[in-house]
């Protein structure tokens, strides 16, 4: 059986695209590099929007990238159920695209923050988290400048009530996110946005743990079983 094909979109200013591709490979899938200016998802089975500073994020994180030609295809495919994981800048792009509610503002301390972050997996039923247990604690790096998740009260309540908070920060909220939110998903659970970087916790040699690999093996398993 052919390996699942997981696309990784490169925008100008994407930084963690190679790392996301490596994580996909380590999880047993075939990474497919997608170019922002194309209109072709190349028939991939899932997509990762990687971290970085697309277009320099001079305006507002993710605000320009959402207008990339490929995003037209991605938005409609995601609405039709294509699994999409947005990491860091990718999360910001998903919010800007309105595939996910809320927004990501500059960190509370106004500093870029890079640290090994303990998280709890709150929802282990999304397309990207089935390899975890609900309530499982993991450590993955966080590194961002604009990671403070905000939404209006009603949205926050709805996210909580419907189990759409995928992960929360433990110990220390690194950026002032509301309700310690580190990641959320859409109603269908196929689109997940995550501020921490699971792709940097896939090898014990280079990461603080291998806890992040579960996001990628989750999707691989799902695609193989599909």
């Amino acid at each position: 059986m052919d390996a699942a094909r997981v696309g990784v979109i490169t925008f100008p200013g994407s930084l963690d695209d190679r790392d996301a591709a490596r994580a996909v490979r380590l999880a047993g899938a075939e990474p497919v590099m997608l170019w922002h200016a194309d209109h072709d998802l190349q028939g991939v089975d899932a997509v990762v929007l990687p971290g970085g500073f697309s277009y320099g994020d001079y305006l507002r994180a993710g605000a320009i990238a959402r207008f990339a030609p490929l995003m037209t295809e991605l938005v409609s495919a995601a609405k039709a159920g294509l699994p999409v994981l947005g990491i860091c800048n990718g999360f910001q792009v998903l919010c800007e695209s309105h595939l996910l509610p809320g927004a990501l503002l500059p960190n509370a301390g106004l500093h870029f923050v890079c640290r090994d972050q303990r998280l709890s997996i709150e929802n282990a039923d999304t397309a990207w988290t089935t390899e975890y247990r609900a309530g499982q604690e993991i450590v993955v790096p966080i590194k961002n400048r604009d990671g403070r998740y905000v939404a209006d009260r009603e949205t926050l309540r709805e996210l909580a009530d419907s189990g759409r908070i995928v992960a929360r920060y433990l110990d220390l909220n690194p950026n002032g996110s509301q309700d310690d939110i580190a990641g959320i998903c859409n109603e269908a659970g196929n689109v997940v946005g995550l501020m921490p970087h699971p792709e940097h916790a896939v090898e014990s040699l280079t990461g603080p743990s291998t806890d992040g690999l579960g996001f990628f093996t989750s999707i691989v398993k799902r695609l193989v079983n599909a």
């Binding site: 930084l15 190679r18 971290g51 500093h111 923050v113 890079c114 940097h200 040699l205 280079t206």
Partner: peptide
């Protein structure tokens, strides 16, 4: 200081501050 720097990007950082040296694969 160092928490304001990204030490993970590129996925090849084997050691970084405050270690004796930085090491990349």
């Amino acid at each position: 200081v160092t928490s304001q720097y990204d030490r993970y990007v590129l996925g090849n950082t084997v050691m970084a501050m405050p270690e004796n040296s930085g090491v990349v694969r």
